[in-house]
């Protein structure tokens, strides 16, 4: 099964909508709640990053009996140093975003922790692609 989502970079309010829909579908498919939890956390963090750091983007989700594979693509500013960005607590989020409880610098570490495989490719000025795999 393949699902596609457009994530609006201006709609802070709608952030998390794609993750919520994927969660509902996985529940209907009878995927265990522990696996759903891991997918929901990793995908939500990636979706939020698209909105707060990259002005939105596109998400493709592939669900097979063996795994869930999520690709999040944006054409935002890119990540100059991925190793640095992966460090717990590292964040370039604005004060405004932080006041809302985002920008704790735990998004990428959470994605790493809760996925089985995480791949980030990024080019400064071009954009970022995040690939998340969780085996069911």
């Amino acid at each position: 099964m393949k699902l596609n989502f457009e994530v609006d970079g201006d709609e802070f309010i709608l952030a998390g909508e794609a993750s919520s829909q994927v969660k509902k579908i996985l529940k209907q498919l009878g995927v265990s709640s522990e696996i759903i939890r891991r997918i929901a956390i990793a995908m939500y963090e990636a979706e939020i990053n698209m909105v707060i750091h990259a002005n939105g983007g596109k998400i493709e989700v592939e669900i097979t009996p063996k795994k869930v594979y999520i690709v999040l693509k944006d054409t935002g500013p890119g990540i100059p140093d991925i190793d640095l960005a992966m460090q717990e607590g590292y964040s370039t989020a604005s004060e405004e975003v932080r006041e809302l409880g985002f920008g704790a610098g735990m998004g990428l570490p959470n994605m790493k922790k809760y996925s089985d495989d995480l791949k980030i490719t990024s080019e400064v000025g071009k954009g970022t692609t995040v690939e998340i795999t969780v085996y069911i």
């Binding site: 952030a15 993750s19 709640s33 939020i48």
Partner: peptide, 28 residues
């Protein structure tokens, strides 16, 4: 009040106490 910490650490069925009140707390 930091959403990433809540996502990662709050257990299913927990009552969540926060001073955040914007719409994203419902998604979390």
């Amino acid at each position: 009040d930091l959403l990433s910490w809540v996502m990662a650490n709050a257990k299913a069925g927990a009552v969540w106490i926060t001073i955040q009140s914007h719409v994203n707390i419902i998604a979390v």
